[in-house]
Design a protein around this nucleic acid. Structure first.
Lengths: 340, 340
DNA sequence: TGAATTCATCGAACCGGTTCGAACGATCTT
DNA sequence: AAGATCGTTCGAACCGGTTCGATGAATTCA
């Protein structure tokens, strides 16, 4: 069933039906009702492809996220959920595209085949060819994350430098002097992932400021890697009394490692980091951490994108968030650890 | 840039370009190359909406999942990831639709506006009006989950009855006599969620078979609820020595509750259940559980759907999976618990 | 009473592909 | 040499909407 059939049954032309539905030209109350009755009776809904072809808008936004392999973290789930929800509120659908780099076929299709009106990108790298490309061709997009030169592009970001720094200061204030840093996997750090790079940066600078002795580690995104990483930390420097982690997925493993090493959190070892609150609350003791406001970020990204779509030519906008550290139960004053 | 422009520059007609690209009719090697050169030079990609309008296929599948509110669990994330990945392998895109019930607007749009060729549904209820509706109108879809009367519909399911039953037998074999069951939230159980209903059923029957003393609980999908639930369990029957949980998100809270009550897992309390392996491995001690093969299920669902799309009229197919219990570290022989 | 204005509606063109039947020249038969 | 056959290519129609200019009837004004 199509608009022609509706028009026939209502005894009007196709264009009148179209105008009655869109309201872009006045239609008399009589005919409007006649048309509406037919539509209700037949349960007519206009074909999305035809509409998209005619007016050049798909009413769909693309959500570009990295393919698995690097396993999904809880944060990514929260992003996806909130983006979909926020988009639905604006009557936009969300098309998922698993693409890490500009050259991915799925990414090329998204743009080239005009499947979406705009895109939201996740897992940003400091040098990100996807964003360079989109900015170059002027394709409406918003990044969840911030590149090295974010000027002129639209984004919603977390101040990872400040967050990692806040963790260091929190630990230093508690008297910790020897602190380890558990980053995302080495491959991501090398690829230039923003959170991994800026987080490391913030940690290192703040530690230097406070004169701490630190070691930094990369760690796979799973519990087993977390366990292995913690063993290395205590082997490399048994006097370590605290750690900061950006690695949500390794958290369970880190805790397990501490338990196995006979360290009690927070009595003789403190743990903190940057983690979504949902996950910080599942471990025991609950993690004192800078809570990643994933839901808010997803919503803000959609807000920005819709704004950009509705008002082309608006100068670039962004949101830089720096949530405070939520004090829970995983950090405490440094004791006097037994030196080897 | 469109197919007409390519045709002009290559000095052929639009139909020839179309045939050169689709291969549905022979095109001479010469013209094919001429066309290909122009396409490469201009970076032409056919417009997805136009193509969808012309041939009636969008090359997109819909993934219908419940709106947040009931917070996402790790399993859902795994499903989404694997579905997107498997679909990409078939050159299908994935459109997300947050819809719990048939009447949701987003769900109606997916179907009525012909945005997708087929759909995959998550979080199935035993009586599910979405599936009834789809079956009725013959819309190609595959459910991840199984309704009460699954005959004639396509699905990939987990044998929750058998899984919960296996957990009970495992505990009974270890000598446990008083066992609690931690289900998903009451609202989901009441709504008739398949896993909650069949899991409860399997647990209850197996417990009766083995003559166990049991209590069953519903529990919110978060750590705080898990903690509260565990406190209730021990208050209701302090002699309880083991529990079975379907609730992944509450797991952290259950563990915390046990620790606070001074119970050591697995020495004087055993925990098991049905949980995706990734999450079973993050807790300490690692959870002995029937691992939900979320990735495999997502992949199978896409396989089935593509098959159904490619060969309309094929009789309904399904996969019922019953993964074995993975022995990890959270269960052990029942001691002689101090009775009150 | 005729001209100007307003309002509602219509027909046709267009968006960018796909597909069908027809036409073309070259080769093969007989 | 005329006719049949084949491989290529073209033009036109179609998918189902949107949008623009035109038309005609009703209303207002001079």
């Amino acid at each position: 069933m199509n608009i022609g059939e509706i028009a026939q049954r209502a005894g009007v032309s196709r264009s009148t039906v179209s105008y009655a539905l869109s309201g872009k030209r006045p239609v008399s109350e009589d005919t409007r009702q006649k048309i509406q009755r037919v539509i209700d009776e037949l349960g007519y809904q206009p074909n999305a492809s035809a509409r998209a072809l005619a007016n050049g808008r798909t009413n769909t936004i693309g959500l570009v996220f990295p393919p698995a392999g690097n396993h999904y973290t809880g944060m990514q789930l929260d992003f996806i959920g909130s983006v979909v929800e926020a988009a639905a509120a604006y009557d936009y659908d969300v098309l998922l595209s698993p693409s890490g780099v500009d050259s991915d076929r799925s990414f090329q299709r998204l743009l080239g085949e005009r499947r979406v009106d705009g895109a939201i990108l996740m897992e940003i790298r400091l040098q990100d060819d996807r964003i360079d490309h989109l900015t170059e061709v002027g394709f409406p997009s918003v990044a969840i994350g911030r590149t090295a030169q974010p000027e002129g592009s639209w984004w919603v970001g977390l101040d990872h430098t400040a967050l990692a720094s806040a963790c260091v200061h929190h630990l230093a204030d508690l008297g910790h002097r020897r602190v380890a840093f558990v980053n995302r996997p080495e491959q991501l750090l090398r690829a230039g992932y923003e959170s991994a790079q800026r987080g490391l940066d913030g940690f290192t600078k703040a530690a230097a400021e406070r004169g701490l002795t630190v070691r930094t580690y990369c760690c796979g995104d799973d519990a087993a890697s977390g366990l292995a990483c913690l063993e290395r930390i205590l082997r490399d420097d048994p006097a370590t009394t605290a750690l900061v982690t950006l690695n949500e997925a390794a958290l369970g493993g880190l805790y397990r490692g501490l338990a196995q090493a006979g360290r009690h959190v927070p009595l003789d070892f403190s743990v903190t980091g940057v983690v979504a609150s949902r996950w910080a609350e599942t471990v025991t003791p609950q993690l004192t951490a800078a809570d990643v406001p994933a839901e808010e970020m997803g919503r803000l990204a959609v807000d920005l994108l819709v704004q950009r779509l509705d008002h082309p030519g608006t100068p670039a906008r962004y949101h830089l968030l720096a949530p405070p550290i939520s004090l829970r139960a995983s950090t405490g004053p440094a004791g006097t650890p037994a030196l080897p």
